[in-house]
Design a binder for these strands. Structure first.
Lengths: 149, 149
DNA sequence: GCGTTTTTGACAATCATTTCCGTTATCACG
DNA sequence: CGTGATAACGGAAATGATTGTCAAAAACGC
């Protein structure tokens, strides 16, 4: 229940994700393809989803690579990761800065919401208990207007 | 990315969790054992953890049953489920009412925190966007005083 | 080009969680 | 107290997302 708990949460340094020391990132067709795809699609998608989309549009990228790339982008803070209660990790390119998501339980429709008040509240509460180096995750689930009808 | 997204979040009715219709819940040694254990232990534990503890204390309960029971308790709202970024689901019997957790990244030490302001904020934001039947998850991670030193 | 170093990607491995399904235990009712 | 219907168990096998492996392929500084 410990020893590995800083994956997605921590603000990890942007480094090569394999095992190497401190070389330079290289531009590859695959990385470009994944980034490009993320720039176009709406909403959240799983790694497998994205992989399938790439295949469909003719780009040949291995599933493993998609995972690695997404992980890298997530670590770099360029995309968001969401862990819905029932399943896979979902990735999405979204706006800069810290924010949260309001997700439809039924169709997945997502709205980005900012909550400055929540941020400060979290910081304060944590500080009160002596906790440092704070981060948090917050997701709101509900049924969107479309799906409610 | 849809069709099954109401597991832990939804306030599902308390029903037999196998496949049957609407019979009555039965009291079994196993369920009692799991509940009893949860009542005694501190902090969060994974299903496998709890299963091991039961084995150690002589109770013979199948892993499958532990999973089922925990799921049931979670659905019934009697225990909390936390999904840490790196791994297994963690379960814990905690105080009544809705609340959140402040968790130490290093040692797992957890503090329950209430945030009425957050609740209302979430409701309001959701309502603004027309979302109904709101629920949310919020977890704060940090390094606790002990581990910071 | 060339050599070095990073990346890739097919496949195997992991591992928590579920499903299956024959067996067992509960419990309402007689 | 039996006892019968059926909820619950539990071990083994299945699932399925993610990660590890490692030889082969690409990048890029020179």
């Amino acid at each position: 229940m410990s020893e590995r708990s800083e994956r997605i949460i921590g603000r990890s340094a942007v480094q090569p994700r394999d095992g190497m020391s401190e070389g330079t990132l290289r531009n590859t067709r695959q990385r470009t393809a994944v980034s490009a795809l993320l720039a176009e699609v709406e909403g959240f998608h799983s790694a497998q989803d994205l992989h399938a989309m790439l295949r469909d549009r003719g780009e040949r990228v291995g599933l493993t690579t998609v995972y690695r790339t997404l992980q890298g982008l997530a670590d770099a803070g360029e995309i968001d990761v969401m862990r819905p209660p029932g399943g896979e990790h979902l990735y999405r390119r979204c706006s800069e800065g810290h924010h949260h998501h309001l997700v439809c339980r039924a169709c997945g429709r997502t709205v980005e919401v900012a909550g400055p008040a929540v941020e400060t509240w979290a910081e304060r509460v944590a500080a009160q208990h002596g906790y440092a180096d704070i981060s948090h995750t917050l997701e709101i689930f509900g049924t969107c207007p479309e799906c409610a009808g």
